[in-house]
Structure formats: structure tokens, C-alpha cells
Design a protein around this nucleic acid. Structure first.
Lengths: 181, 181
DNA sequence: CTTGTTTTGTAACACTTGTTATTTTAATAT
DNA sequence: ATATTAAAATAACAAGTGTTACAAAACAAG
């Protein structure tokens, strides 16, 4: 009694997310998404109220993507915050457009901390680990480390940082050691 | 024998720069600039080949503006790089749009270092001061400090950093001390 | 197969963009 | 004062945007 849906909301969201990941938010227009999805613009507006609605979906998908990325990143370090830093900096290098969307947005969406802490409360885990290591003021330590990590990641995004993962690890450990004492 | 020019290249550039400073590059369109300059779009295209040409001019003006900002910023600190850091972070807070244009650009123009070092070789001055203070590896020190400063500035730009100038100074001195030893 | 309903495609509207052709305006040399 | 001529204004074009009206097509149920 009715035609079957062939272009789902999920399909459109996936296409838009892939575009955001590869080309940035800029190129996400109704017609471009449609072209990439091999359809007209209609299915987009059937699934989403408007383009802002779609962009919002892309953003949420990016948040989830970062969380998965972080969860999957190998946790090799003992020094607190170093795992977080390694993952964050690598994410900025490998997913420049997503990093920009999430952590250097034009208009404020969520704070750095909100995204970063995610579902599994990544930061709290690290702070706990710092406390266990005998750190007196884990809040102050976190702030400094975090500023440092964010700086490296932002430079990575713009191509102004080119240390390897190994060099980055060494630097993070050194910096963390400096801050701890 | 000819009409006198009433809307100069400089006037247009000034208007566009002010717009960039207040609203960001996004809003710099031919018609918006014209409106702000109280003229039609013609004088723009008489003075500039196209809009990209104008944007390029705005960018160069922003580079010069940063240099002036830095030169005028009070140099109160003794610890190396702290003056640079204070100025850089303050610039990010007070001139968000310009900071974004210069230091977090969508497309690479100049490296952070190129802009930062400017006419008066700001960085070299600081490195020299570090050497005089007995720092063994001023290059490594600079890299760490710089990453830290850039992180604070980027957070400042997005509203994720809210330490006062006094708190910032204390933090920079502490961090610099940590790195020095 | 026909009918009914929904999805999809086509086409259009209204708007904004960069850029340019054309007309109008105003200052100056005569 | 008037003619000349560059500057500015007006208006248009083509392209691209979000969004919507409408027509075509496909599928499920009878």
C-alpha cells in the first residue's frame, strides 16, 4: 500500500559525515550530499527538518566517533594524561576536519571538556590515576597538561607540529614529569 | 578633466579589516563591505582584482596588526617566553577573529612561526634571553613553551580558557620554571 | 492488475554570492 | 560655462544556496 523507502536517514547521515570527515563542514550542501548519495535533495529533507538539522546530526556523529577513537587507542603509558594526550594529538593529525569541527568550532557547541570526557569519563579516570600516583593537586596538573596537549593537537591540525608518535610520547612524559615535581 | 577619487583602496581595506576583526572573514562579501563603506561594489573592484585579492590584503593587515600588538604589549617578565606568551594569549582573547584568521586558518598561509617571529624577530630575542639565563637547550624549551602558549591561546579563542592575566602570568612562570629545570 | 499511498525526482522560488556592462555623476582643464 | 573623462551607481548575469510545490514512479494490498 506504499512505496518502500530506499534512502534512509542513516544513509544520508553517513554520507554527510564522510564528507565532513574528508572535506570539512563547508562542502556539506543539500545538492552535494544528494550527489554523493546518488539521489535528489528530497530524501534529505524528508529525513531532516533542514540542513542545520543534518549538520547537527553530523556533529553528534563526530562526537561519538571521537569517543570510539579514544577507546580504541592503545593505552601504553603509565604517566597520567599521557594516553589521553597521545590519542588526542593523533586524532588531530589523522582527522583534521573532525578535530576542527569538534575542538575548534566557529560557534560554541560543547566545551572541550564536555566532548573530551565523553561517556566513559575519560578525564576522571586520568585524574584518579594521578591521585594514585601521589599527585597533590591533580586539578592544576590536569589544567597544565591539558593546555599543553591541546596546543600540540591544534598545531598538528594546522600542520605546524610534526613530531612522531614516539617523539610525542617522550615529550609528554617529560612534560608530565616536569609538572608533577 | 576627470572626477576625483572619493573611495580609496585604503578606505576599503580599512572597512574590510574592521569587519574581519569584528565578525570574521565569513561576512566579508562585496556587498557587505560596500554597505559598510557607504558605497556601491564598484570602488572595491576598481581597487582590488577580486574578493580574494581583498582578503589577502586583510590578512596582511592582520599580520601587521599582530606585530604592533605584540610590540606594544608591556614586557614585564624576566622568564624567557613569558612576555611572548602573555601577549599571545591576550591577543587570542581580545581579538578572537583575527587570532583565528592568523593562527588557526582553514588553509595554510604562513606557519605559526613565520607570523610570530614578525619583523623584529620576537622569538630569537626570547631564545637569546633563555641562553643568557643558562638554558642548555633553548630550542627544546621554546618548543614546549610554545606548544603550551598556543594551547592556552586556542582555548582562549574558543572560550575554554578563563584565567586572568595575573593567573596566566603565574602559570606561565610556573610552567617555564618546570621546563627549565 | 488496479488502486492507493508514499517515496523520489524535477523544477521552481527566493536569496546570496562574485563579477561585469552600462549608465550616471562630478570634477577639472579649457 | 562647458566639454571631457574618470569614478561611482545601477543593474544585470551566472552560479550556487536552502527550501518547497508538484509530478512521476514504485511498491504493497486488495
Amino acid at each position: 500500500m506504499a512505496r518502500k523507502e530506499s534512502i534512509t536517514k542513516q544513509m544520508i547521515l553517513d554520507v554527510a559525515f564522510r564528507m565532513a570527515r574528508e572535506e570539512g563542514l563547508q562542502n556539506i550542501t543539500a545538492r552535494h550530499v544528494a550527489e554523493r548519495a546518488n539521489c535528489s535533495t528530497q530524501p534529505i529533507f524528508r529525513s531532516f527538518q533542514n540542513m542545520d538539522d543534518l549538520i547537527e546530526g553530523v556533529y553528534e556523529k563526530a562526537v561519538a566517533f571521537f569517543q570510539e577513537y579514544y577507546d580504541a587507542y592503545p593505552k601504553l603509558e603509565k604517566a597520567p594524561f599521557c594516553n589521553l594526550g597521545m590519542a588526542y594529538i593523533a586524532f588531530a593529525r589523522e582527522e583534521r576536519e573532525l578535530f576542527r569541527m569538534l575542538f575548534v568550532p566557529e560557534k560554541q557547541r560543547k566545551s572541550l571538556y564536555e566532548i573530551l570526557n565523553g561517556d566513559s569519563e575519560n578525564v576522571k579516570t586520568e585524574i584518579q590515576s594521578a591521585i594514585e600516583m601521589g599527585c597533590e593537586d591533580p586539578g592544576a596538573l590536569f589544567m597544565k597538561i591539558w593546555i599543553f596537549i591541546h596546543g600540540a593537537a591544534c598545531m598538528s591540525m594546522t600542520g605546524d607540529y610534526d613530531l612522531s608518535a614516539i617523539e610525542t610520547r617522550a615529550m609528554l612524559e617529560s612534560v608530565c614529569g616536569s609538572f608533577l615535581k
